[in-house]
Design a protein around this nucleic acid. Structure first.
Length: 763
DNA sequence: ATGGAGACTTAGCAGTCCGTGT
DNA sequence: ACACGGACTGCTAAGTCTCCAT
């Protein structure tokens, strides 16, 4: 297990200094990267290939897009394509008859693959044509309601439908059972509620009975969301110029134009896609005559607007104390009114009670939709979810789109966003029971995996030899998920940034090296994952994995799927067969938490000081962050603050030197005179030197720590992957105050763990 | 099976807050 | 008192996974 994660990302993307966007772009387009200088040559041709391939991929997209226009045709096309594909692949893809034997050294190229009758054809077909184009985000989808949503206001009806819900879910989850409960005494104790008094502050929901399966609440009451403030037209002296001439825009166009103006200095506006999308959408907000005049974004001059916004924010910064206080008070007032809900009789904080304001869509990476206008959400777009008879009032003069009472979901309000057509939700804060319980359950499943992971690993290693291609691919992908903590890798639409995970890796994302840096069978991963964050890793793998990968890559183009018979549904279905509740993401949670536990166990010296222990904790945390590839942009001020720190270190060094010198003098003096006073003075100096040295050490540690941390984000793993009970137990065992590890928000979120985990807890 | 919608978790960034050293 | 820089918070995009209709 240990060696499982022994690799580390030695090569970070050094381009991440400054602007991430820039560096990402570079990635995609130029394939820069210093660490690659070595095989520059190779790289170059490869690069060409990739570019070429990218084009092909694009072409493919286009084709598909087009065919979508005529669905019938499309279907036929697909069929044809599939058959063709089948025929093409059949010649090389079948391995069933020839499992790799243990000592198989025949060059792969000379292998011949034949088909046997036992393979059901369909079983072993590539899952071709996976990509789809999402139909344009529909402006208005027909409202789909759950059958059990009540349409009447009858309370019986409510109860009845509740029951129905329960029943439905129960049937489905009958086998899923209450498993988190059983493990390691961690189950919610069935203690009865106690002391109602302080309960408002701290509701120990973890000591209560859980809801029946599928039911998320019994009662839910809230005030509805807060809408973005209305648009405030610009003062008359703030001008927009077109072709150098002043032009007064109507409110609608002015508002959208100002979104752009405010971003004028952002990297986004250097991107064609962004500008194109923005301009196209902007025109939709123009009056007829505006549209006629404004035909070229390049002729637009927003600089006055930007200056105005900057001045305004400067003004904001310079507000007096009183003004600031007043504003704070006002904000607190809205939080008080809208930031809370009452759920099952308890007041709980809402996470995001404000509706997203309009603006320009800021997709990450190479997002095809960046720059599109995200329009203003009105009450008429919003669905409210709450208990019967408690619906909040819509803002004056408005109506809700719908009010429903669905207690099988956790959201309080929702709307459909126009850019991607996704549903957005207002939900509870992470300190709430609803979120906390789920979080707890997540870690319980991860702990279950700990118990069966060895078996699972044996299984997938065995499957590397399977004669069925599908199973081999599955087992290799699972190996990546487990060993490298890769994400599952769902298929993505064409109208999203091109990023991948384990199941969606393409041939172009890995390269195989029989030998690299003295290691055998090295796989180099280089792809963009979630949020277009680059994953680069050189991993020595088992020979069998290496050979399998060679087979998977045979006769494929760079843009082809590496695992052409695999997707996340197949993977998760298999995982669920191995262990109830197991999905791909559980491996990430498990490996992260497990790593933390192991690292803490090995790095913590019980005799060391609290400071040193915290350092050890951060090291452990960092190991996890690296495993999960949690990166961040190097802070803008990093270089400068590092320089300052270095200055301090130098100053300290000088101070030590001086002190040492005077210590020597004093010692000499003491020896010479033999006076008690000078001896004492010498002794004092000695202590001072020691103290200074200690300070220097601390500074140096800090410098290393900061340097090592500059492009690693610790927060994400702390918040989402590390079982808080590990940290809590560690704190309790080592006498480290929990506040040193978790700040206030984090303590709120992990209240349950802080309360229930004793020093003896082990993940 | 497949695809799409829906629900919920995970993610990095940007702006603000706040403590610290000068 | 003030400037600096790191910590924290809020925001919302981007994943995962389930469910349901076809």
């Amino acid at each position: 297990m240990q060696d499982h994660h022994s690799h580390k990302h030695k090569h970070k993307d050094k381009d991440r200094e400054k602007s991430k966007d820039k560096s990402r772009d570079k990635h995609k387009d130029k394939h820069k990267d210093k660490h690659r200088d070595k095989d520059k040559h190779k790289e170059k041709s490869k690069e060409k290939e990739r570019k070429h391939d990218k084009e092909e991929r694009k072409q493919g997209k286009e084709d598909r897009k087009q065919s979508k226009e005529d669905k019938k045709l499309d279907k036929e096309e697909k069929k044809k394509g599939k058959e063709k594909h089948k025929a093409e692949k059949a010649s090389y893809v079948e391995v069933k008859n020839e499992p790799l034997s243990e000592d198989d050294d025949i060059p792969l190229a000379t292998r011949s693959f034949s088909q046997t009758s036992q393979d059901s054809e369909d079983d072993d077909q590539p899952l071709a044509f996976r990509k789809k184009i999402k139909t344009e985000a529909k402006a208005e989808k027909p409202v789909k309601r759950k059958a059990e949503d009540m349409t009447s206001d009858n309370e019986d009806d409510y109860a009845a439908s509740n029951k129905k819900n329960k029943k439905i879910k129960e049937e489905k989850k009958a086998k899923a059972g209450k498993k988190p409960a059983a493990v390691n005494g961690a189950s919610p104790t069935k203690r009865v509620k106690k002391e109602k008094k302080e309960e408002e502050e701290t509701w120990k929901w973890w000591e209560e009975e859980k809801h029946e399966d599928g039911v998320k609440w019994k009662s839910l009451e809230h005030k509805g969301p807060v809408f973005a403030t209305d648009y405030e037209p610009l003062p008359g002296n703030v001008k927009f110029l077109y072709s150098g001439k002043e032009m007064k825009l109507a409110a609608a166009a002015e508002e959208v134009g100002s979104f752009y103006a405010a971003m004028l200095e952002h990297d986004y506006v250097t991107k064609d896609v962004f500008n194109k999308n923005f301009f196209k959408d902007w025109r939709k907000f123009m009056t007829h005559s505006e549209k006629e005049i404004i035909t070229d974004l390049k002729k637009c001059d927003f600089t006055h607007m930007l200056t105005y916004f900057k001045a305004k924010s400067e003004e904001k910064k310079n507000r007096t104390k009183e003004e600031k206080q007043q504003l704070k008070a006002e904000n607190e007032e809205t939080v008080k009114e809208y930031g809370w809900c009452i759920i099952d009789g308890h007041k709980q904080r809402i996470g995001n009670f404000k509706i997203e304001p309009p603006g320009l869509f800021r997709g990450r990476g190479d997002h095809p939709k960046m720059g599109m206008v995200k329009r203003r959400v009105m009450p008429e777009d919003v669905i409210i979810n709450c208990s019967k008879g408690t619906a909040p009032k819509p803002p004056a003069g408005h109506k809700w789109k719908e009010v429903r009472h669905d207690n099988t979901v956790t959201w309080l309000a929702s709307w459909t966003e126009n850019v991607q057509g996704q549903v957005k939700y207002i939900m509870l804060n992470s300190a709430s029971r609803l979120k906390g319980e789920k979080d707890w359950q997540k870690y319980e499943i991860a702990r279950q995996l700990k118990d069966s992971v060895e078996k699972i690993r044996e299984t997938y290693k065995e499957d590397w030899k399977s004669k069925e291609m599908k199973i081999r691919q599955r087992s290799v992908a699972l190996y990546f998920i487990d060993k490298l903590a890769l994400r599952a890798g769902n298929e993505k639409d064409e109208d999203q940034a091109d990023t991948v995970g384990a199941c969606s890796l393409r041939v172009e994302h890995i390269s195989l090296h029989e030998q690299k840096n003295g290691k055998q069978c090295v796989v180099v991963f280089d792809f963009l994952g979630k949020d277009s964050i680059r994953y680069y890793n050189e991993v020595p793998v088992e020979k069998r994995v290496f050979k399998n990968l060679q087979i998977f890559m045979e006769n494929k183009k760079p843009g082809d799927d590496l695992f052409d018979r695999l997707n996340t549904t197949i993977m998760n279905k298999h995982l669920n067969d191995l262990m109830e509740g197991l999905t791909a993401k559980v491996f990430r949670t498990f490996n992260a938490s497990n790593t933390l536990q192991e690292q803490l166990d090995s790095l913590t010296d019980p005799k060391s000081t609290v400071t040193e222990k915290i350092l050890a904790y951060n090291r452990a945390n960092r190991a996890v962050a690296i495993l999960c590839n949690h990166q961040r942009a190097v802070p803008k001020t990093f270089a400068k603050s590092m320089e300052n720190l270095q200055k301090k270190i130098d100053a300290k060094r000088d101070a030590i030197e001086d002190a040492e010198k005077s210590y020597k003098d004093l010692k000499k003096e003491a020896k010479r005179t033999g006076s008690a006073a000078s001896k004492i003075a010498a002794g004092k100096k000695e202590k001072q030197v020691e103290k200074l040295k200690e300070q220097l050490m601390k500074l140096e540690v800090q410098a290393t720590d900061r340097e090592e941390n500059k492009e690693i984000a610790l927060g994400t793993s702390k918040l989402n992957y590390l079982d808080p009970r590990i940290s809590v137990a560690w704190c309790k065992k080592n006498g480290v105050p929990i506040e040193k590890i978790y700040n206030k928000t984090q303590r709120d979120k992990f209240q349950w763990a802080i309360d229930m985990a004793g020093p003896e807890f082990v993940f």
